[in-house]
Write a protein that binds this DNA or RNA. Structure first.
Lengths: 142, 142
DNA sequence: TCTTGACTTAGAGCGCGCTCGAACTCGTAG
DNA sequence: CTACGAGTTCGAGCGCGCTCTAAGTCAAGA
């Protein structure tokens, strides 16, 4: 698989793939006789996993640490596991934080909903011609 | 309240507070006769809310949009609500994504746990003197 | 043979969100 | 009176994670 196809299949750009190789996140890829990278499909699993780490907010320097342990192969499992467990805890903590923020957001949105309801109620007390069209701005707002 | 105290109480640095004012996230603060910012305690609520937006990944440009609507005051409630609702959905989606990643992480960690267990079991079959000390590296690893 | 287009490398540039430094002004405590 | 510490403005700098440009190579199709 050439870099273009890998890009399409992984969702990364070719630029990013080269960048990842440069910094060591992706292993140095075999080149064909004209120096072009030729990938094995198995790289996709690794890229996908890196994507999970990224999605969950792991900084590249930590992914790099994990990648290096992985490269070193057997004997590094405990360390890799520890790294992932630490990360898992930080992700869990972050999810909790997000959920707490969602509650605040719900409250805030609820407040606006009430305000709007009160305005509608008030509007309904006006004679027909003085009602505002839905979504109307205050006349003072430009 | 002077900027130093606000910094302590809000968790932001004085530098960041000035930066936020500069870009419009915080309202232009009243100055005392020697041009020093003097804050009302109510600013803390706003900073805290901004913190929630930040925690949930809202980019500054969107917070700015919200701040502007807020400054414009009444008549902008529907828009503010819509903005927060859109944001809430994106946060929810992100939380879902994080939870999915957590499952993958659990699986991966589970895999390492199994490997380690197998290694311990194997080790237990060796005669006493050949057992590895806990946490030992492979002899080849430097 | 010529053209096209996907690739190569090295290195510069960018958008974000701060973060810091320089040089200066005040108000207060000793 | 002086020294100090906390503030001021303006603008440069930074760490992160890409993203893009320039200039060149190569292989396959018309």
């Amino acid at each position: 698989m050439k870099i273009g196809e890998l890009a399409r299949r992984s969702g990364l750009t070719a630029h990013t793939i080269r960048y990842y190789e440069r910094i060591g996140l992706l292993p140095y890829a075999d080149r064909d006789r004209s120096s072009r990278r030729d990938y094995d499909a198995s790289i996709l699993d690794w890229i996908e996993f890196l994507g999970r780490l990224k999605t969950t907010g792991m900084p590249i320097r930590d992914m790099l640490l994990y990648a290096e342990l992985r490269d070193r192969g057997s004997g590094t499992e405990a360390e890799r596991r520890a790294l992932l467990e630490r990360h898992r805890e930080s992700v869990r903590a972050h999810v909790d934080e997000l959920n707490a923020c969602l509650l605040v957001l719900d409250t805030k949105i609820g407040g606006y909903a009430e305000t709007e309801q009160r305005m509608k109620d008030y509007d309904a007390t006006l004679p027909e011609r003085r009602r505002k069209p839905v979504g109307a701005r205050s006349p003072r707002a430009r």
